[in-house]
Design a protein around this nucleic acid. Sequence first.
RNA 1: CGGGCUGUAGCGCAGCUUGGUAGCGCGCCACGUUCGGGACGUGGAGGCCCCGGGUUCAAAUCCCGGCAGCCCGACCA
Length: 494
Amino acid sequence: MNKSAISPTRQEDFPGWYQEVIKAADLAEMAHVRGCMVIKPWGYGIWERIRDLLDKEIKARGHENAYFPLFIPLSYIQKEADHVEGFAKEMAVVTHHRLEQRDGHLVPGGELEEPIVVRPTSEAIIGASMSQWIQSYRDLPLLLNQWANVVRWEMRPRVFLRTSEFLWQEGHTAHSTQQEAMDETIEMFGVYESFAQEVLCVPVVAGEKPPSERFPGADRSFSIEAMMQDGKALQAGTSHFLGQNFAKSADIKFLDHTGELCYAYTTSWGVSTRLIGALVMTHGDDDGLCVPPRVAPHQVVISPITRGEPVDADVLAYARKCSQGLFGSTYCSEPLRVKVDDRLIKSVDKKWQWLKRGVPVLVEIGPRDLEAGTVTFRKRTSFYQADTMKLDDFIVQVPNLLGEVQDELLDRARSNLESNILTDEIDLSAARAYLDQGNGFLLAKWCGDTACEVAFKEQAATIRCLPRDRKAKGTVCVVCSKPATTDAIFAQSY
RNA sequence: CGGGCUGUAGCGCAGCUUGGUAGCGCGCCACGUUCGGGACGUGGAGGCCCCGGGUUCAAAUCCCGGCAGCCCGACCA
């Protein structure tokens, strides 16, 4: 009888399962514009939680939010050579500014003298402002962040993972010294790492990107790499040390305390709606999504079991009493988010809906509970096992229940990550065979030569990052057997 | 951007070969019997058959061109 709610299952067809969960959990649907998605309330609610919590972390470190234009003059983009090369192939370009009737059709008219690109990222246009705002070392550091949409015309869109338009946060800072900019890069890198783990329950491998995977125009890039349940890596957040590259191209200069004119050092860092894709592929099961309580739009849903009988009114009142009892309680220093789902549909349908959406705790209240002064509830992590508790006890216990779900999700994900990182010292053919199966990460030594990365191309595997906290066994490069200079995580990736 | 597959009711699909009144299941609405693990019966609503051209007396069906989606590559903070 315990037929799973999602078909196909993860085992049968992981990409098919992913798309089905997106749909069944009411997160999003593809719009009829290439690669664009409509984010539905449950999905957007998760994004709002991510935004609100991360925004606090960003502001707590002295950054201020601002907003810069969606449109960037082509000439701004052109200033940084690597940046242009990195983004040129995926740019939406605006060339006209009106529509004209011609042969009964609307066609673009009024060609622009200079084409405008829709921002794929905002280094170029924010740099232009920075250059005007910064004159003295007293103007530094300049610590900005913006929440915005960006557009990248990717070849192969995938909902939440790689959409033509997506929502993100992009931090942009300018500093007077290299060290301070580097510290900033590492600081925000750390914020992402702990946010992923503590808030999203997504454990990650944190490390520096190899040169081939750097952000276009960056001197150094750092990323957090999460492992999806199919063993593939998902880059979940990046932080870049841009050196003086953008300062030179955007003319961001200041007079230091000795009166010398210097270029600033800049950084940028961001996370996007891709994090929702990470949540799905980290915590989803064959019954749908499991939303970590800290980012769940509703942490507790109370479903009154009504059957069109006189007792319904009392059941509903009892459900509201339960909801009100939770009012004023907190979890992680925030008021509980509780919803009474009093829609006039069958309670069993509500149960399946909330299972698929992944609400952390679902409470069902019926005439029996009313009579006994109890509630019946299920945690999403053990949904098929309902518990019954006195109402007063339940009200006290809810924060603990949420904590349990949060912990269970993290533990489960962490054990998946750790048990699927191959750390054996193996030779190239064994490494290839392992990566070809695509069931996890390989932690191995690397000589630092890009040519050795190419050896894994056939297996579609790349170096995801040079892990900060993990040491591979051995002393020689897994590919060429020359002395290794670093540890590296090899994996297939999204 | 190359190769393959697909586009018909909210969702999943049949019909297309061989052109001739638009179908099925789920869902939705109404009523009745049910009801704490996806109930059942009866009746009903709902379609520019992706878009634009062409062939034809006649196109969901044949031809051409687009657009969008999925899978595989290449590409990709």
